[in-house]
Simulated scan of single mutants.
Amino acid sequence: MTLMIRDFRPADAEAAAAAYSAGRPHLLMTPETVGYLTAHVSPKMHYRLLVAELDGRVVGTVRCGVHADSSTPGQGFANVSVLPEHRRQGAGGALLQAAEKHLAAYGVTQVHAWADDEPAAQDFAARRGYRRGRICHFAHLDLTAGLRPVPPLPSGIELRQATEYLDDPYPLYEVDVAGALDEPGDVDASEQEYEAWLAEIWNRPDLDRELTVVAVADGRPVAFSAVQTDGGSRYWSAFTTTRAEYRGRGLAKLAKTHSLHRALAAGLTDAYTNNDATNAPMLAINDWLGYRRCASEWKFIRDLSADGNTPAP
C-alpha cells in the first residue's frame, strides 16, 4: 500500500468532490466548484487543496486555508474528507498533518475543523488534539411532498431574482456582509472585501442566481435567500439573511419560501440546509417550511501554539 499526499490537480476534481460527499448526501459539492475554488479564492486565504492518493487512486482531501476575512488574526481551517471504504488507513491523519504544517507557515495559531456527528469522526479529531465546540444541524426537505404557500408580500416589499444584479452585485454583497456580522459561529467574516466576495461566493459555478431570491425595499436589497445547486435535483441553502433594521417582517421566510417554489417548478426534488444549533430564528423558519433534521456536525478547534507547532519563521 502506497500513500502519497500531494496538491490537487484539475484531473482530480471528480474524485475530490466524491470524497467530500461520499456517505453524506446532505453535502453538495460539484467537480466544477472544486476546481473553481482552488483557482479563484483570494490569495490572502492561502487556500490549499491536498489530496491523498492511495495506490494511485484519490481517496481523500483536505481543504485548508487562512480565515483572512476575520477580525481576529491567526485563524485557519482544515476540513478532511476520506472515502468511507478507505478510512483508518492513515490517509486522514496524513492529510491533516500536512494541512496544519501549511497553516502554521502562514501564521495560523488556531485551526477550526468540522467532524461528522458520529464516534469515529469525533475520536479522529480528539486523538489529534482538537477540542469539541459548537454543533450545527443539517436538515432535508422533500420538495415533492408539498410546500408551504408563499407568505403575503409585505407593503413596500418586492421580490427579485439575483439575475437582476449581474451587472452590479455590490448591493447583495452589502446585505451579505451585514447579515454575517451576527451569524452564530466562532470566526467572524467582518473583514471580507468585495473582490474576495465576488470570487468566493458570487462567481461560484454552483450559485444559482435564478433561484436566489432577493427582497427589495425602496429600490435596494434588504434580504435574500442564496441558493447553490448540483446541476441535477439537489438544492442547497447557502445563506439566508436580512438587514437588521428590516428583521421581524418575515422577509427571510418570504424569500426562502419563494425560492423553494421556484426550485420545485424547475424540477429539483431535494433541498438541504444547515444551521448552528443556537440560530433559533432560522431553525424556526426551516421547521415551518417542513425541513427535518438528517445529520449534524461538530466544530473542533486546535491551538497549534499550545504544543510547539508554531508558525515557521
Rank of each mutant, 00 (worst) to 15 (best):
R9E: 15
I201G: 08
T38I: 09
F77L: 06
G35T: 00
A266N: 05
G248L: 05
P313W: 15
Q192L: 08
L54H: 07
L3Q: 04
G76L: 08
G179I: 03
Y165P: 01
A180P: 01
Y106V: 13
A121Y: 13
R9F: 10
E164W: 08
T229L: 01
L207D: 09
G290M: 01
V187G: 02
L83N: 00
T30E: 10
S259Y: 06
D186V: 00
S237D: 15
P31V: 06
H140R: 13
L27V: 12
A265V: 06
L159S: 11
Q89C: 14
A199H: 09
D176I: 02
E245P: 04
L211G: 07
Q192Y: 04
A139E: 12
L254R: 01
Y272R: 01
N279W: 09
M4F: 13
A126P: 07
G107Q: 11
H261N: 06
G23H: 09
P152I: 00
T241K: 02
D218P: 10
R247T: 02
E158G: 11
P31G: 05
R243V: 05
E53N: 04
A15I: 08
A178I: 07
S225C: 15
D167K: 12
P43T: 05
G250E: 06
L172N: 00
F300H: 12
A271T: 02
D142W: 11
G74N: 07
D270G: 08
A18V: 12
T2N: 14
H112Q: 10
D116S: 14
R88T: 15
N274G: 01
E183N: 05
N275E: 15
Q75G: 02
D230E: 09
A104D: 14
A199K: 11
H102E: 09
L49E: 05
E53W: 07
A13D: 07
E191Q: 04
T278D: 15
A52Y: 04
W197Y: 15
W298L: 07
H112F: 13
A215Q: 10
G35Y: 01
P171R: 12
I157H: 02
K253Q: 12
R160Y: 06
R148W: 00
G90E: 05
E158P: 00
T212W: 11
D7F: 02
Y194N: 12
I301V: 15
T269P: 05
S296E: 10
A11L: 14
T2G: 13
N203V: 13
A120S: 15
Y291L: 09
L289S: 04
P119T: 05
H137M: 14
S21D: 11
T163F: 04
L251Q: 00
S81I: 08
